[in-house]
Design a protein around this nucleic acid. Sequence first.
DNA 1: TAAATAAAAGATATTCCTCTCTTTTATTAT
DNA 2: ATAATAAAAGAGAGGAATATCTTTTATTTA
Lengths: 143, 143
Amino acid sequence: MFSKTCEYAIRAMIFIAQKTREGDRIGIKDIARGIDSPEHFIAKILQELSRKGIVQSAKGPNGGFYLDNVSMNRSLADIVRAVDGDKIFRGCGLGLRQCSESQPCPIHHEFKKIRLGLFEMLDNSKVGAFTDALEGSLAFLKR
Amino acid sequence: MFSKTCEYAIRAMIFIAQKTREGDRIGIKDIARGIDSPEHFIAKILQELSRKGIVQSAKGPNGGFYLDNVSMNRSLADIVRAVDGDKIFRGCGLGLRQCSESQPCPIHHEFKKIRLGLFEMLDNSKVGAFTDALEGSLAFLKR
DNA sequence: TAAATAAAAGATATTCCTCTCTTTTATTAT
DNA sequence: ATAATAAAAGAGAGGAATATCTTTTATTTA
């Protein structure tokens, strides 16, 4: 569904959100361990998200990644869009470039509902909203 | 959502279904033209589907691809499963290997609904069911 | 100011997906 | 039998996604 890059990105963002709630900045090594991802790879991804202002970072001792108030309230849809683009929200299910209402692929109308459902689900999920579930071991970010 | 291979496969299967309804076998070149795909690539894909019995083929003059009664009633879900596997129907949205009811990722429960919706949509769409829409130019398989 | 810390950036490897080209095999029609 | 047709099979090129390693830059603390 999402690229590996995007999966790591979402997991990392939720993880950073939790640490931010606890008042900590968190380093790349701990993030990689916390979400079970390749260290240098997630570093690259967060670099990119940092450039886009979706995650905050600080260099040097006591540095690391964290989320400001705006970032904490971003939706998972924002992250997906930032990493994978909006192909998954807009693209044709059968790969046609010109698929549209007036020139639909055979599954266009049905597929549209699925995509919309996906978008709404992600759009309603805020990065900072999973803290409680993670705290209570009702949700997990690795394995 | 689906791999390019899978997109071509679905389009080709629907195209072949339409030709079969018209009483024709159809050759690789015409399929490639009809669904706007690379010729040798869709050939490979159909070879694989042929091996699995999902499409029928005949060599030699007047040969080509066609669908028997069983194949004509296959669902798009069958094709997706044959080409991409069932990762999209079962896999975790965030890429966790052990995501489950008892050890869910943060979006497990919501994501499950989306996946189920996708599956049901594809499972209810039979390969042979798009003939009318294609005939009446209410649906398209290329561009 | 020097040393330590940690992210940013650059460079490179590896793997998989997509796509292409060539040769072989099977079937039909003459 | 021979020639023509068309799929099957084999081999591999190209590029994007994934992953790793090294060097540089920025910040803090002592």
